[in-house]
Design a protein around this nucleic acid. Structure first.
Lengths: 153, 153
DNA sequence: AACAACTAATTACCTAGGTAACTAATTTAT
DNA sequence: ATAAATTAGTTACCTAGGTAATTAGTTGTT
């Protein structure tokens, strides 16, 4: 039974660190890190996207995304193409990335499998829906608090 | 309904970032960051601890803890005393920290309140118990996998 | 047509947390 | 008693993510 918010927040934080740690270990043989994998995964699933769109999909600010993209480019897994709007940079998976992707995905799925075995399917669905709802709630709440702050200026 | 592990892990990760971000904002007026607050909170609740013990309580490796402690010391909120075993450093809250603590706690609790309003009490308990179980499971699982790896050497 | 406002991306700099390699103190074995 | 192994903490260096300030390109206004 939960007696305070500290414990809950701490558990979330700790879990997040465990997950990324294990994922990084799984990706290590390929010279990839979890932030890079996240980008590759989104690009594979959605096709070419601008950096802005990638930021929105992954809920990350622009500067870390710039860095991750520059690294992936250096490794030859993506390329940038500017469109009509020269500010926008569309990010594409290279054929090199396309051909490596299945290996990466396999390693990641195996790691995820290990991480998730101790969580019964029912709990998986429960936790996912609670977390999703909570995230939405937090974003609204934060927005509201900010607006009140502006209003009170 | 959860269709893959990526979504779940991503939700956990994103939530963790939201929570620390909001907590940092709440602590900003006091010149504190969430990692420092975590240490202060544990020391207040448990009394003096060695750095090793602090690491275990907060599930953090030693190097980041060293850094957090050095910062808190510079701010005059803690002091180190070596015991009989000269390797161990016991960390104490200073009276300055003790007198400031209630203000910090109030700010943190208010922030936590905002973050948790969108999560019904039932969901709080549900999520906390699932997360706790899951964390335990992951640690066992990871340990097992490592042992198998050693065995197969 | 020219100036103002906005937008996408980058740069510089901050905190958090991780591993590997090291130092100093303490146990354990021989 | 001394050499070897272990332990607590530190240092150096890595990735991740955040904010603030800047640049270049685009839109809107007048």
């Amino acid at each position: 039974m939960l007696n305070n918010s500290h414990s809950l927040f701490h558990a979330v934080h700790q879990l997040s660190r465990q997950l990324t740690k294990q994922l990084n270990e799984a990706l290590e043989p390929f010279g990839l890190y979890n932030a890079q994998w996240a980008v590759l995964y989104v690009l594979k699933a959605n096709g070419a996207l601008t950096q802005k769109e990638l930021c929105e999909y992954l809920a990350v600010e622009a500067p870390p995304m710039t860095r991750t993209i520059q690294r992936l480019m250096k490794q030859g897994y993506i390329d940038q193409r500017t469109g009509l709007d020269k500010r926008k940079k569309f990010i594409h998976l290279t054929s090199k990335a396309e051909s490596e992707f299945p290996k990466w995905e396999k390693a990641v799925l195996e790691a995820n499998q290990v991480l998730i075995t101790s969580l019964p399917k029912g709990s998986q669905d429960a936790i996912y829906s609670i977390l999703s709802e909570w995230l939405i709630g937090i974003k609204q709440q934060v927005k509201t608090v900010e607006e009140e702050a502006i209003f009170n200026d």
